[in-house]
Design a protein around this nucleic acid. Structure first.
Lengths: 197, 197
DNA sequence: CGCTGATTGGCACCAGGTATCAGTATGAAC
DNA sequence: GTTCATACTGATACCTGGTGCCAATCAGCG
């Protein structure tokens, strides 16, 4: 019947919730063998919000109205776009983009910004990256705002291949440079999209 | 006072919730000017779950024990890893990785898998992509499982630069190939990590 | 006129909590 | 011993955001 020390229970509680935020207080009573009131006092002390708030938080994080998630359409916010000519986007390096140990952005996020801008700048129904030659000039760090500028060097409407050069800056320092070759559908404008409003 | 037709309200309701899943029924009554009961009947007909269920769903999606989100550590599941030699990872193309119109994977996801494998295979505290030369051989499509194989061509422990070649296959077809140059901290093993449990 | 579908209102109930007050157990201090 | 603080448990009222169900109303149509 010996109760484990409070501190230890707090640690366990924190760990349990961390690796399963979906636990209700009732389930926690089972796992920690204390009353539901104790669980609630513990959460209070540890400043762990109630289940619904936890889920809401997670949902908010994954929702993000700015659509800055690599899951969505364009990575970064388009600041300027002149189809088949040039484009500019901004992408802020946040916690979730960096190596936690160094605060340096993972390369693929910086790449993703550049790549999706290179695709967005092509004035075509279908545009796909064919190849790219890229360099990470200096690391981008947590909190920095990356400004990517894309220039269409040859639009290749006939040939079906466009060349786009992208430079990414933080302030006036270049952090990334890439040459993209983008496949384009070359005038074959599909008209299937009747389903969506 | 004219009520808009039910169908139209249903469409609006669906759209409203789609672009703000956080709306409660009460808020929807305000937006659609109908009673809360009507809202609930509508949700019932449209099979739209209640607020809490919606948030729970989003939270679950963003939680994903497999960590297949580009937000997290390694994109794809590591199947095999021999540090400073080679590595294999698997990444399944899902809805959220493709252009909805064509079902073709966005380049940066395929790149992200390759890039993070190239970084993971380096046996060092700090490893960063310096540059890469990549080619998308053929598009990867929804549902396909991409197998990336990374080979360390020169580990460059002294020089601080490693060369890693990555090939990504779907079945026996190559979809991506890349040559990565990875900066490494070259033996400077930091020992700061005293904060975490 | 009655019928039907759409809409509204009211009430009981539920989960997963918060907030508050009261009671018990246990060990240390005096 | 008594006293006190801390930890824990219990019980109750209340809140939000719903579900489920039943009854009432309202509009349009044949």
């Amino acid at each position: 019947m010996e109760r484990m020390p409070k501190k230890q229970r707090h640690q366990q509680l924190a760990r349990l919730i961390e690796d399963n935020p979906f636990l209700t207080d009732r389930e926690l009573t089972r796992l920690l063998k204390v009353s539901i009131q104790t669980i609630r006092l513990d959460r209070l002390e540890l400043a762990i919000p109630e289940l619904r708030e936890r889920l809401k938080l997670m949902a908010e994080r994954s929702y993000d109205p700015v659509r800055s998630l690599p899951l969505h359409e364009v990575i970064g916010d388009i600041l300027d776009l002149q189809l088949d000519k040039s484009g500019i986007s901004m992408f802020e390096i946040r916690d979730e983009h960096v190596f936690s140990r160094s605060g340096i952005a993972r390369g693929h996020h910086v790449f993703a910004q550049a790549n999706s801008l290179a695709v967005a700048v092509i004035d075509d129904e279908i545009a796909l990256t064919a190849s790219a030659d890229i360099r990470f000039i200096r690391p981008a760090r947590l909190g920095e705002k990356c400004i990517a500028k894309a220039y269409v060097r040859s639009s290749g409407v006939q040939k079906g291949k466009a060349k786009v050069e992208v430079f990414t800056y933080v302030g006036d320092e270049m952090v990334f440079q890439g040459n993209f070759v983008i496949y384009r559908s070359a005038g074959a404008a599909d008209e299937e999209g009747a389903g969506e409003a």
